[in-house]
């Protein structure tokens, strides 16, 4: 009985280990292709965390105002350069370019209020919820 259970266990393991090979053999070649249009940048996580921590330390009185502003600006610039790099990496992908065109058209159809604004420094269009230009780091706060 023990040997039978042992053999069954071994066969089960063999089946699970070989399953990916069988699956790839019989999988349909016409499986739909997915297009990723996200600009998810996991490198931004630490920058967001750093900004949150900086804000907390400012509130706790550990960081004086001048240091707070200086460090906040550097984090924004860091985030901007990450995003810019991401844009440059994906700029050649037609599906992604198309998606961006759609997004811009939608934004235009929604009207100018709440839409993108031009950076006073480099003239790049900046998303409305941002306080700084991700392209050059210039402040957009006066427009909020």
């Amino acid at each position: 009985m023990t040997l039978v259970i042992g053999a069954a266990l071994a066969l089960f393991c063999l089946a699970i280990v070989t399953y990916p090979f069988l699956k790839s053999r019989f999988a349909s070649a016409a499986s739909p292709r997915t297009i990723s249009t996200s600009v998810a940048a996991p490198e931004l996580g630490p920058v967001y965390d750093a900004i949150t921590t900086l804000h907390l330390e400012y509130q706790l009185g550990k960081v004086p105002q001048n240091l707070y502003k200086e460090q906040l600006a550097s984090y924004r610039l860091q985030a901007a350069s990450v995003l810019r790099q991401r844009f440059q990496e994906r700029a050649g992908e037609p599906e992604w370019m198309l998606e961006q065109e759609v997004l811009v058209t939608r934004a235009a159809l929604r009207g100018t209020e709440g839409g993108p604004r031009a950076c006073p420094n480099c003239r790049s269009l900046v998303a409305p919820e941002l306080l700084g230009c991700p392209e050059c780091g210039a402040s957009m706060e006066s427009r909020v």
């Binding site: 949150t52 810019r84 961006q100 997004l103 811009v104 993108p116």
Partner: peptide, 22 residues
């Protein structure tokens, strides 16, 4: 999980850290 900023258009509309986090 933090919301990642949504991209608008390459070289035309940029996104960055959300104002609320700062």
């Amino acid at each position: 999980v933090r919301q990642t900023a949504t991209a608008k258009a390459p070289g035309r509309v940029s996104a960055g850290p959300r104002a609320s986090t700062a």
